[in-house]
Design a protein around this nucleic acid. Structure first.
Length: 192
DNA sequence: CGACCGATCGTCT
DNA sequence: GACGATCGGTCGA
């Protein structure tokens, strides 16, 4: 087990990072309660030139400020007034790249995850959908800006190998407003 | 099944 | 004052 370090997050190619995050382990540890899952779906948001990104055109607001931090921070924001979406900030400071985690396969703490979701049985042992991933792992907007090099939220690799043929690239979800950028194959799905 | 719709509120204009 | 990087329930076939 090897926690991903600053050298992983601060690279320039956010699309490559999004692809490499498939198969890695995402862990949260709040109040001694550990939950984790293997990342099964990601989306890359490619900085100021990406019309789908909150930081498109260099937009800089209170909400998006975290995206301009050095790679290795968590960017969590509220969507539709209900859902807390968890992103990994990448690249160096002032290059606002991020990877949205859209699905994980539950590994540790399934009982706690079910409790957070208010459910008894979880289909496919999968947290599918970015809002549900955050809810199940206990991540909220309060965690935005948290360092992934710390112990509350982090990502590690455990030697689980994913053949590149088992990673499918597709356009991103829910970003029709992004015009031509809506078609970019920046979404990666683990072939189950 | 798939299509549709309502919930709900912080953020930006 | 409008609108989401969504979700889950309901309705009809």
């Amino acid at each position: 087990m090897k926690k991903l370090g600053i050298d992983f997050y601060q690279r320039k190619d956010v699309v490559e990072i999004a692809r490499e995050l498939i198969g890695k382990m995402l862990v949260t540890s709040f109040n001694g309660i550990i939950t984790s899952g293997r990342i099964a779906e990601t989306e890359a948001y490619n900085g100021v030139t990406d019309k789908a990104s909150h930081a498109y055109g260099g937009r800089r607001t209170n909400r998006t400020e975290v995206m301009y931090m050095p790679g290795g921070a968590a960017y969590v924001y509220l969507c539709y007034g209900i859902h807390h979406l968890f992103n990994v900030v990448t690249n160096i400071a002032d290059e606002p790249h991020a990877v949205l985690i859209r699905a994980v396969i539950i590994v540790d703490g399934s009982e706690k995850i079910l409790e957070r979701l208010g459910k008894k049985i979880l289909k496919n042992n999968l947290l599918k959908g970015p809002g549900v991933v955050s809810k199940g792992l206990g991540i909220s907007t309060a965690a935005t800006g948290t360092s992934l090099l710390d112990t509350n939220i982090f990502i590690y690799e455990d030697g689980f190998e994913v053949a590149s043929s088992n990673i499918i690239a597709t356009p991103r979800i829910g970003i029709d407003y992004a015009e031509e950028d809506a078609l970019l194959p920046y979404r990666f799905v683990l072939n189950a």
